[in-house]
Nucleic acid binder design. Structure first.
Lengths: 112, 112
DNA sequence: CCATATACCTAAGAATTTTAGGCAAAAATA
DNA sequence: TATTTTTGCCTAAAATTCTTAGGTATATGG
């Protein structure tokens, strides 16, 4: 990951959430979308992406459909029912993480 | 870290920021403070804490003063000038991370 | 007296990511 | 048209960071 190294541990969450929203996507498309959304700050390396996609598929979070575009293979991933359950948990964790981080790192802000 | 594995990569940031605010602290105190602030969700293991404190000291981010409390050693850490510069960068990264995460994960919110 | 809390530490292993490749088609550019 | 860049898939070794699982020892509360 280019500059920001904090995203460590959140790659699976990013992938699952993106697929939940956008429907099916292929690997390269995910890297471009995340880069675009994060203004170039989250650069998912392929060495991290593809093993993670394979792991999420093996864990039953994603399914794959291979299509031929011209002479080229493209693998579209979709989120499963289990994946949608997983994303709910991961989102709750992410929100808790952000909340606690803000408490830790912005102690000036008064909490109600 | 107990359940949440998202904090990976943020341990150094937490330590530096805490020391910047609270002045000097010792290792065990840091673990208790973080646990208290995060409502028990961030549990820093000692196997992660002490190597990180040593690394930050080696990198010139922290200095140590050893004191004897009764018959027991206590090592107080303080942030250095370089550490304060580092914490500025890390806070900016953290804010960017949180901002991009919210964009990625809460796409319903309209951005101005 | 004994268990728990305090307080330091290290080392092996696990998990996740970077680095550094490989392969090949399609598109852009020179 | 020739060459470079982009697209698109992949793997394996190394690095990073953390967990697990110890070790040592004092202080405190029951």
């Amino acid at each position: 990951m280019g500059s920001n190294q904090l995203y460590k541990g959140s790659l699976a969450t990013i992938i699952l959430k993106l697929l939940e929203e956008k429907g099916r996507m292929y690997g390269y498309q995910i890297t471009q979308e995340v880069k675009a959304i994060s203004a170039g700050e989250f650069v998912i390396t392929e060495g991290a992406l593809y093993p993670m996609l394979h792991k999420l598929e093996a864990d039953g979070m994603l399914t794959v459909e291979t299509e031929m575009i011209g002479n080229r293979m493209r693998k579209y991933y979709s989120i499963t029912h289990d994946g949608k359950k997983e994303v709910v948990d991961r989102m709750a964790e992410m929100e808790a993480f952000i909340r606690h981080m803000q408490t830790l790192l912005n102690p000036n802000i008064e909490l109600a």
